[in-house]
Amino acid sequence: MIGSVKYYLCSLLILFSINCNAKENSKIAKIYGGTYTPLYGKKLSDVTVKDFYIDIYPVSNKQYLEFVKKYPEWKKSKVIELFADDNYLSMWIDDETIPKNISPDAPVVDISWYAAKAYCECQDMRLSTVDEWEYVARADETDIDATKDRLYTERIIKSYETPRTYTHNIGSTYRNYWGVFDMHGLVWEWTLDFNSIMISGENRSNNDLDRNLFCAAGSIGASDLMNYAAFMRYAFRGSLKANFCIRNLGFRCAKDIEKN
C-alpha cells in the first residue's frame, strides 16, 4: 500500500524535476556562451547564449533502459497516451528488452518530448534550448562556427539524407570543437522549446506566419538562405508535436552552470 502511494507521488513529480537522483555527469562538455545568428531569429538580430553544459553523446538505449527500470511509469506498457504516442519505444520488444539487432549503445529513439524531458530532469539536467543546440552544432572539428564553410554544410546535408543512421552507436560521428559528438549524422534531437519553431502546419492562418509552408517555404525571414542543413532541422522541429515518437529522433541533456 505504502509502495503504491510512493509510486503515485513519483508519477506526479516526475515531469517536473523534483527529487530525482542526480547521476554522475562525467560525460558532459562545458560550452562557453557567445552570440550567434539563428536561422529564424529575433527579427534577424543575434542571440546571446549563456555558458552551459551539454551531454557529449546523445542518450543511448542502455541508459534509457536504466531510466525506465527506475521510473517504471516511463515503460512502454505504462506510459500514458498524453505523454507519448503509439510509436513510443516501438522497436523495443517489451518494457525492458532492447531487440538483438539494435545496439544498446545506439541512441535511444522513438521517444516523446515529455519522456526526454523527464529523463533529463531525473539526471538533474534539462533539454537544451534550440539556441543552445544550434550554437553547439555550428562547430566542426576545429572551428566554433563552420556554417559558412560550404563543405561543412554539404557534409551535414549528406548525413541527413543517409538512411538508418539511428542504428549507429553514439560517438560514431565526429568530435566537434567543444568535444561534443554526434550533433549531426546520427539522429535528430529534441530541444526544450522546439515549439518555438513556426515552420508548421497548424499556424497557417496566422497573420504573418502562413508563408512558411508554401513555395517560398520558410525562405522569407531566414537569415541564411544557403544553410539548407539548418532549414532541414527547423522544418523537422516544426513538424513535431510533443507526444510524437519518431524513429530518427533522440535527445541529449543540458544543464545550467551554477553560479558560485
Binding site: F16, W113, Y114, M198, S200, E202, N203, N206, L209, A242
Partner: peptide, 26 residues
C-alpha cells in the same frame, strides 16, 4: 515550464521575438 507543457498539449507554438512581442499560433 508549465506554460510550455500546456502549450505542447494543445500543439500551440510560440516564440518571444522581442521584449514585448511574441509570435504564436492562433
Amino acid at each position: 515550464e508549465n506554460i510550455r507543457v500546456f502549450a505542447n498539449v494543445m500543439g500551440t507554438k510560440y516564440k518571444k521575438i522581442s521584449p514585448l512581442e511574441f509570435s504564436h499560433s492562433n
